[in-house]
Design a protein around this nucleic acid. Sequence first.
DNA 1: CGGTAGATTGATGAGAGTCAAGGGGAGTGG
DNA 2: CCACTCCCCTTGACTCTCATCAATCTACCG
Lengths: 212, 212
Amino acid sequence: MPKAQAAACHDRSAALAQPARSAGLLHFGQGREIFQEGGDPGVYFTVVSGMVRTCKFRADGRRQIDGFHGPGDVFGFELAQAQSLSAEAVSNCTVASRRWRNLGASGRNVPHHLFSHAMRSLARTQAHALLLGRRGAVEKVAAFLAEQAAQSPDPALITLEMTRQDIADYLGLTIETVSRTLSQFERASLIGMATARQVRLHDAAALQKLRD
Amino acid sequence: MPKAQAAACHDRSAALAQPARSAGLLHFGQGREIFQEGGDPGVYFTVVSGMVRTCKFRADGRRQIDGFHGPGDVFGFELAQAQSLSAEAVSNCTVASRRWRNLGASGRNVPHHLFSHAMRSLARTQAHALLLGRRGAVEKVAAFLAEQAAQSPDPALITLEMTRQDIADYLGLTIETVSRTLSQFERASLIGMATARQVRLHDAAALQKLRD
DNA sequence: CGGTAGATTGATGAGAGTCAAGGGGAGTGG
DNA sequence: CCACTCCCCTTGACTCTCATCAATCTACCG
């Protein structure tokens, strides 16, 4: 089965160590697993520093990334659902875990911030579904760059914390297609890449057009 | 532009009539618009009978369907976000509208049922994103059939209320590919189609495997 | 100075999109 | 009751994009 190769690229057995615990904050080294499918549904997390990915593993070993989460972002809400995702550290990162009671159908009210987190997760996931619905690698990669630029301190300079494989699994493409599309953008002078992880947007307007 | 053709297939100008109002319940004829992007964010809806689709229209006229909603399902929560979707009646349907205050950051608690709706919308959207991330028409269509079967009174007999175009826009495929894939399933005796809208699952286990 | 993981590039083929031409089925009107 | 029409669906032929397989290339680290 040819797809087994891709699975090996992000073998989960590589991430087994226990995180350091310090005043409710958890630290994870790059690639470490933060929680896995079927974890404790009574907690959720906030990213303090670094970047986290939430993902789903298929039966055939293929991986699909649900989202990238930077400082301030909340993740792990999905645990309340049957939908179980796992989470891993894209880079060295610190996350804060919070316990909460899922009140079930108890009829009690819910703290506003929890509702707010749910709504933001919903918006994020809808945007992702919209992205995945696009046909064409160009549209997807352009949309991805725009998304990253929006979260960057300097919207013209993106520092990608994730690998090409991560991007591919997020966009529903292969690593080669992502790479080729970025090269294509560079040849067209839409972007410049000092290193593979440093992307400068030369023509944001043109990229905007490519998004759709 | 070749894609303009597809846009004409679901021209929104065809749906302009006002719905009948009766005790908070709204009735919509097939194809009618229930709300459009940028509508009143202070209401959400529950399907009483029939089926509703929520969708997004792109600049080039292409349509992407966010979800299908049957009796009991809640939709329109997205209105609270910048993410605006529109909603249309797939079949003749009745929906109940409810008003709610989006409390913003007021710090007050939120009624539990609202939170519950948000979480279910989140789960639904995540499942859809997972579906769209699949590569291959076979996987997508098989997953779609499984999804429909799960909501059907008889899990072995699906009555599709939506057109092939709806299905295609939901799966990120073309109408031809959806049609061909269903025909392929039928030739393989995985399903049987008395009419184009009546699908009998002959081999649910095999379809399950195709989902991946 | 290797060694390794990540990234790029090329060649090739499978699969989905596109364009185009028919087949029903349901409703309408004669 | 039949003919007509419109819309939806299906099927075929062809094109093109992207996945796949394979070979480097680069940067980083021991």
